[in-house]
Design a binder for these strands. Structure first.
Length: 637
RNA sequence: GCCGUUGUAGCUCAGGGGUAGAGCAACUGAUUCGUAAUCAGUAGGUCGGAGGUUCGAAUCCUCUCAACGGCACCA
């Protein structure tokens, strides 16, 4: 007897083990047709899976939340089958579902072209029409290795032979094609449907290691129906419209050019945004007890040798030579800050010492890594190092997490992903010190109320770190803030303080940043706001636009009043229709338009039009200026 | 750095061996018109850069630079 509990609470009894398909058929013919898989006690399995004990079972159909992963994974298999039919000799390697679709990595000597994608897609549709049945088989390990070798699948053969001995070798066969896979899968290729699209070609290393052969990856997306596919493609278009590189150009914020790859030319408007951000965070840091310093751009190689950067970070550093010395452009501010700390004698009473710098750092990033403002070679960090005693770590870390959340909230980032990166295999410092460091950091992140995921072994060689990750408009994640504990640099650069006991002690350093880099954060904000900045950040806040030249004199008065209130305003006296002016300034994403004509001039009023708004508000000039200047205040003010 | 793709006017793009084209933007003139495009005209490019093939190269070949999409790396 098998008792199966359905999601609606109904209980079904069977006198012998029953497959998912049988169960669906027993419930109803419609469901039997729609069934893609079964979820047994919370685990999704093939429809053919035999349930031989009492269980809670759901039938997974296209509309089920778990259907998407099945479709994605199956689409990868169908694509691989199509590719091998069309391009014999191509080896299959690995092809998982992703957050928005799927990919499959192939090994083939000739490069796939964008035209090939169309052919592959067409063949995939044929395979769906063939409705090949998909079945799971358990193979003997040696048999599997032999089979893949004989069929020229070197990568698969390697993979199989490395599967742990206690695991079964599970093979999925669809039609005449087969692949090593843990599943689960759809019952047949016809169930995949045709709401898929191959998106792009890319290179990828076998097992993610640059030392391994490079494979060709084909990305695709798949959805339960055409409508959702169209919706997804539309979303991508919308995301593209708010790409910071595009908005940066359209709004005249910044540009890049070949001669300075990876470095930003900030235009007046973009630099206004930059200055607002810098001013904001400076205020926040000052209030949190930080002092601000400035340290040299070029420092002799001997200091970088002492700090360990010459050894660990050399390939990312730009160097310069003069006379017989080698200097390096600083990639980080920390060694400079230790030099300031070392001036004179520091008492435990001076700790914690929070030393901030808007340091312009240069890092020679790989050319392929450069990406608009998000990844540059010259960046300015909102950097600071907190020198403290070990006993102060936790309080400082908690205070930092609070400050960081306060800042992120000011920009509307309510969801922050936190990664906790713990001790790496290669590290400095004793295990006891690491135990303490990790424990204090964990306590801090928990005390700050931040959910986090552990990122095992990804900490810096000198200490564990927290990474604070924001997500951009196109779904890419960017690390912004960071908090790192460092027991090594104070030692290497011989920083010390005099303790209560009158003896010398090593301080601990906390490396921390909230924006990360001003460049990246600006880029994220441009995408986050889609260029429609809140008033305090908008490079140009108000345009005063006249209806006819009769209002020119009054418009100048309005502009003067805005200037006096410290608002960033421009005057538009051009001989153009007001509709033209409204359109132009709307496209330029100016937050506030003050329209003045004869009526306003006579009544000393303004017609306030908000970006994107349909309504106008008629206010007395003084009232309008007052309201706008209140609204334009920085959240840190 | 690796793989693939792309570089033509400020922007979006067409042209594909016989020495460059459109739309928008810009500029000039006219229009004084109350909330997302007034009309007319003018100007603008050594076709990313360097070599080569050719009587002739934006177009074909080689190298190189940059950008884009990934991979790897990272704020």
């Amino acid at each position: 007897m098998v008792a199966i509990t359905l999601p609606d609470g109904n209980l079904r009894h069977f006198d012998r083990p029953v497959s998912g398909a049988d169960l669906a058929a027993a419930i109803g013919p419609g469901l039997a047709k729609a069934a893609l898989a079964v979820k047994v006690d919370g685990v999704v399995k093939d429809l053919a899976t035999v349930i031989d004990r009492n269980a809670h079972v759901e039938i997974v159909t296209r509309s089920h939340p778990d259907a998407l992963d099945l479709l994605r994974h199956d689409a990868a298999h169908v694509m691989a089958e199509a590719v091998q039919e069309l391009y014999p000799g191509t080896q299959i390697t690995f092809g998982p579902a992703t957050e928005t679709g799927f990919y499959y990595d192939f090994a083939r000597n000739e490069a796939f072209t964008p035209d090939d994608l169309e052919k592959i897609e067409a063949r995939m549709r044929e395979i769906v029409d063939r409705d090949e049945s998909i079945a799971r088989e358990i193979w003997d390990r040696d048999q599997a290795v032999r089979w893949f070798r004989e069929h020229g699948e070197q990568f698969k053969a390697e993979w199989v032979s490395e599967i742990p001995a206690e695991e079964q070798i599970s093979i999925y066969r669809q039609g005449e094609w087969l692949d090593l896979c843990t599943g689960p899968h759809l019952p047949s290729t016809g169930k995949l449907g045709k709401a898929f699209k191959l998106m792009k070609l890319a290179g990828a290393y076998w097992r993610g290691d640059p030392k391994n052969p490079q494979l060709q990856r084909i990305y695709g997306t798949v959805w339960p129906d055409d409508k959702q596919l169209a919706q997804y493609l539309h979303q991508l278009e919308e995301a593209e419209k708010r790409d910071h590189r595009r908005l940066g150009r359209e709004m005249g914020l910044f540009h890049f050019q070949e001669e300075a790859a990876g470095s930003v030319f900030w235009h007046p408007k973009g630099h206004t945004l930059y200055r607002m951000l810098e001013g904001y965070i400076r205020t926040r840091l000052g209030r949190a007890g930080y002092v601000e310093v400035k340290t040299p751009q070029l420092i002799d190689r001997s200091l970088w040798e002492a700090s360990g950067h010459w050894d660990k970070f050399r390939e990312n550093m730009f160097t310069a030579e003069t006379e017989d010395r080698v200097l390096a452009l600083k990639p980080m501010n920390c060694p400079g800050h230790v030099q300031i700390f070392r001036q004179g004698i520091t008492s435990y009473r001076d700790l914690p010492l929070r030393m901030a710098e808007f340091g312009s750092c240069h890092r020679n990033e790989a050319s392929g890594a450069l990406h608009g403002l998000m990844r540059v070679r010259q960046m300015t960090q909102d950097d600071a190092h907190i020198f403290c005693m070990e006993s102060q770590i936790e309080a400082e870390a908690v205070a930092f997490c609070d400050l960081l959340q306060l800042v992120y909230r000011d920009f509307g980032f309510d969801e922050v992903h936190v990664r906790f990166s713990d001790r790496p295999a290669v590290r400095a410092g004793s295990d006891a010190v690491w135990d303490r460091a990790e424990a204090s950091l964990r306590t801090a992140v928990e005390a700050a109320g931040l959910p986090y995921v552990v990122n095992p072994g990804e900490g810096a060689f000198y200490g564990p770190k927290l990474e604070f990750v924001l997500r951009d408009a196109i779904g890419r994640e960017w690390q912004c803030g960071t908090l790192q504990l460092d027991f090594v640099l104070p030692e290497r650069l011989d920083a010390s303080y005099i303790g209560e006991d009158g003896a010398k002690h090593r301080p601990v350093m906390l490396h921390r940043a909230i924006f990360g880099s001003l460049e990246r954060f600006a880029g994220i904000l441009i995408e986050h706001y889609a260029g429609k900045f809140p008033l305090w950040l908008a490079p140009l806040q108000v345009v005063v636009a006249t209806i006819t030249s009769d209002a020119d004199d009054y418009a100048a008065e309005v502009k003067a009043a805005l200037d006096a209130a410290g608002l960033r305003a421009e005057l538009d006296l051009r001989n153009e229709k007001i509709t033209y002016k409204v359109r132009e300034h709307s496209l330029a994403k100016v937050p506030v338009l003050l329209v003045v004509g004869k009526r306003e001039a006579e009544g000393q009023t303004v017609a306030v039009r908000r970006l994107g708004g349909k309504e106008q508000e008629f206010l007395a000039l003084g009232e309008a200026v007052h309201r706008l200047s209140v609204e334009a205040a920085s959240p840190a003010a």
